[in-house]
Structure formats: C-alpha cells, structure tokens
Amino acid sequence: MSIHMGGLREGHSVDNVAYICQMLGELRQVAFSEGADMLCYLIEMAYVEAGDIKSGRRPRSAGKRDGNGSSGMAV
C-alpha cells in the first residue's frame, strides 16, 4: 500500500490516512507496554494529527515551505 499523498485520488488519500491512524494506534500500544512514555506521547500526537486530517479538520499539508520537506529518512 502506497502512503504517498501526492498524485493520488482523494479516496486513496483517505484510505492511506485511515491506515496510518490504525498503525499509530497499534504502535502506541507497543510503546505503552514497553513503558516508553515519551514515545507514547509522540505517537499519540501523530495519531491525533492523522485523525484530524482524516476527518477534514486539518489539511494534509501546511504548505510547501523551505526547510519543511521530507527528512529523507526511510520508513
């Protein structure tokens, strides 16, 4: 499943964001079971952000700004 948002139809984007939400929820449970409080917090913030995007309360991107690009980190 591709999670790249650019160039995909809206339906695919919604499906991808829903998938991200699901995975973040599962990752949070793993982090919680390991007692990784800061990691739980960061994952929870990403989960909330993804939920806001999925529901339309927040745009997918704040815009193309210098220095706001991908870190190039493989996921």
Rank of each mutant, 00 (worst) to 15 (best):
R60I: 13
L27N: 07
V30K: 03
I43L: 15
F32Y: 06
E26W: 00
M23W: 00
D66Y: 12
D66M: 12
R57F: 06
K54N: 11
I3Q: 13
K64W: 09
H4L: 09
P59M: 01
G51M: 06
G67F: 10
E44W: 02
I53N: 10
F32T: 03
G11N: 15
Q22R: 12
D52F: 09
S33R: 11
R9P: 13
G11L: 11
R9W: 03
G56C: 00
M1P: 04
V30Y: 07
E26L: 01
N16L: 05
A46Y: 02
E26A: 08
Y41Q: 02
E44N: 10
G67E: 11
R58A: 12
I53F: 04
G11Y: 11
D37H: 01
E49M: 05
I43Y: 05
G72E: 14
E34R: 09
R58Y: 10
I43D: 11
L27R: 02
L8S: 13
P59T: 11
S13A: 15
D52V: 04
E34N: 08
G25L: 01
R65S: 09
N16R: 12
D37Y: 01
V75K: 12
G69T: 08
K54V: 04
S70T: 07
Y47M: 01
G67S: 12
F32R: 09
G72P: 13
Q22Y: 01
C40K: 04
G51A: 01
I3T: 14
G67V: 03
S33Y: 03
R60W: 05
S13T: 14
Q29E: 13
E34H: 08
E10Y: 15
R57E: 09
A18G: 08
V48E: 08
M23K: 10
G35I: 01
S61V: 05
E49W: 02
S55M: 03
E10Q: 14
M38Y: 05
G25V: 00
H4A: 14
L27A: 14
G6M: 02
G63K: 07
V17A: 00
S2Q: 13
Y41K: 03
E26G: 06
S2A: 10
G56T: 05
Y47K: 05
M38A: 04
K64P: 12
G56L: 00
E49R: 14
G7T: 10
V48Q: 13
C40H: 09
A46W: 04
G72T: 10
V48S: 11
I20V: 14
G35V: 02
M1W: 07
G56Q: 04
F32W: 00
M73N: 06
I53A: 05
S33F: 06
R65P: 02
A36N: 05
G51D: 03
E34G: 02
L24I: 00
M1Q: 14
G35Q: 02
L8K: 15
G63R: 10
L24K: 00
K64L: 15
S55R: 15
M1D: 14
C21G: 06
V17S: 12
G25C: 04
M73W: 05
P59N: 07
I20D: 06
G51T: 12
Q29I: 03
V48P: 02
G72A: 13
Y19V: 05
H4M: 11
S33H: 02
V14N: 11
I43A: 12
G56Y: 09
C40Q: 07
G51H: 08
G63Y: 06
